[in-house]
Design a protein around this nucleic acid. Structure first.
Lengths: 341, 341
DNA sequence: ATGAAAGCGCTAACAC
DNA sequence: GTGTTAGCGCTTTCAT
């Protein structure tokens, strides 16, 4: 481990004062070229690293945000969306020169009472461990109220359960996204379009279903109950839903699944039954978290604008941490064409 | 945002000196009961939160470890193992009163040159941003050498690519794990046991294959090439491998898949072909990252001792950060019985 | 057992 | 432009 070299040592070596070294670090414009040069050389020669804690105490504070996951462990682990969200957010934090602290992962932890009270969050804030929170997942009302109170800087990925909540958020426009997916199927000439919904106790599932219904309506196609099957966002549920859809005897030629996992599950069943995709049935998923399958087919999917979402989240939090008000944002999705339509 | 209350305010209110407050915080034993009482009351009344940075400067330093992922983004997202690893490690860090910083996630980031040089890591260390690294995934040799040098405290989850590397690590005993899985199949009376391997360019895949071979050998069963199919740890590859296994015409009655995802893919194919599990074919996976399927079947799987692994990693890193030498550890797996055998 | 004072490494007035 | 000085909030001798 490197022994720590302080600013004074650099100053001494560069034959200037600590203040000048500090200036070179923070406002290089106001120090003479040649002096800067000397200081920089001294810094690299000594391989100087400013002490983060000292800087923070002094007043220069590199923000660190706490990443909060309110999710069941298994959901976290089995749903690719989580990983996408994490890395997306992380990249944007990097761009904004912020650090990222993991604060709570999954219910397995919150259940252990480690974070059972909101005090815990204030502790993180108060101790300057983090300067704000990025929240992912669906939390209990008490927490939502807490974060919505505005006492602590926080922004949510998704939408608050309570529609009237003042909690700042950024989310995809799930309904419009679903509309674009289903409309695409219609444009491809499909008319008997089934859907597999997600867990309807969640807002995204409901929105995506609404989008499906609206797209049909706008195109003068009647909604048929026999074309609607319920899933819970897991692959297995997608497969089962597809089976029941097929067994009901409808002549389905298009499928809109509320997420990619279920689309994949459905396609397993289709291929097992000798139905070709997209020959017999076109399928569209949601989330765009799949790679081309071994069959060579890449799933057509409604994709979140991950980068934009991440950026909106981080910008929003930065604003909140600066004390500014933050307006929530609804971000458009885009349809990513694959080979399944 | 709460206005910051300092130690002096607490001291004043409790009618003691800052020094005493500090003592209450750090070595309560040496301060009189009644004084402690008063101080504690003052603290809660003012809802005082010690400033992390000030403490660090003063000398009390809560360790922060940097979580480093050397993995391709898609692997991260699509392989449940990642999430398990993260949350496992995180829980153990919590137990040890350490914080967790995300440092690099996936190749998408390293590729962007943000962490292209090892200097970057020293920066994190030097700036006291983190005190050590927990590394997950497979890294390029240059990084491995860097971390193995011992200059920076680091422990790897998995095993170094270079067998002679001095890099401290903790890993499951994949080979023994595979032996236990295959032996279990044999004990269940299976004799024609196929295997689907993982990406053989990785050490775990090779180890698990070795275990398969050894278990057969130890039980006097000949290895048959027609019972070995290659996959790449993805579900789709498992399905394809299963198909080719079945098409080869062998009368398979047992399957050992090198991970759960592939086992699931294989089972998709089995059910599509009307083969029952475990009736016709018993199947064992590896990693134990599945929930019971919709069919009600929970996959039998060789499970990592996640808690132990996490604990070993964190303990090891703590030792390294204290300057002690750390000995790597190989941790036994345990077979988790499900309904597929 | 407790208080006074020095100092951790840095930043930010304020002078020159 | 650059140096001097005084903190930032805490820990830790050293007295008492």
């Amino acid at each position: 481990v490197h022994k720590k070299v302080t600013m004074s040592e650099v100053a001494e070596r560069a034959r200037v004062s600590k203040a000048t070294v500090s200036r070179v670090l923070n406002r290089p414009q106001i120090v003479a070229e040649d002096v800067q040069e000397r200081v920089h050389r001294a810094m690299t020669e000594l391989s100087y690293q400013p002490n983060r804690h000292a800087r923070a105490l002094g007043g220069i504070h590199r923000k660190t945000v706490g990443l909060l996951f309110f999710k069941d462990l298994w959901d976290l682990v089995l749903n690719p969306f989580w990983g996408m969200a994490t890395s997306t957010v992380y990249e944007r934090l990097l761009d904004s020169d912020m650090d990222c602290n993991l604060i709570a992962l999954g219910e397995s932890i919150t259940a252990k009472e480690r974070f059972s009270s909101t005090d815990r969050y204030e502790q993180f804030l108060g101790s300057r461990n983090v300067d704000g929170f990025l929240v992912i997942g669906h939390m209990q009302p008490e927490y939502e109220n807490y974060f919505a109170s505005g006492e602590v800087p926080a922004v949510l990925w998704g939408r608050p359960a309570a529609p009237t909540s003042r909690l700042a958020y950024a989310d995809s426009n799930h309904e419009d996204g679903a509309v674009s997916g289903v409309t695409h199927l219609i444009e491809r000439g499909r008319r008997t379009i089934a859907t597999i919904t997600g867990d309807m106790s969640t807002a995204p599932a409901r929105d995506r279903y609404e989008g499906y219904a609206r797209a049909l309506r706008e195109n003068g196609i009647d909604l048929r109950w026999s074309l609607i099957a319920n899933g819970d966002f897991t692959r297995a549920s997608g497969a089962e839903a597809m089976r029941s859809l097929l067994d009901s005897g409808a002549e389905i030629d298009g499928l809109f699944a509320a997420n990619d996992e279920m689309a994949l599950g459905a396609m397993d069943v289709l291929s097992a039954r000798g139905l070709s995709v997209p020959g017999d049935i076109s399928v569209v998923g949601f989330d765009n978290v799949t790679l081309p399958q071994r069959t060579g087919l890449k799933l057509t999917s409604v994709s979140h604008s991950y980068d934009e979402l991440g950026a909106a989240l981080v910008e929003g939090l930065a604003a909140r941490m600066h004390g500014e008000a933050h307006t929530s944002r609804l971000i458009p999705t885009r349809l990513v064409l694959g080979d399944t339509t």
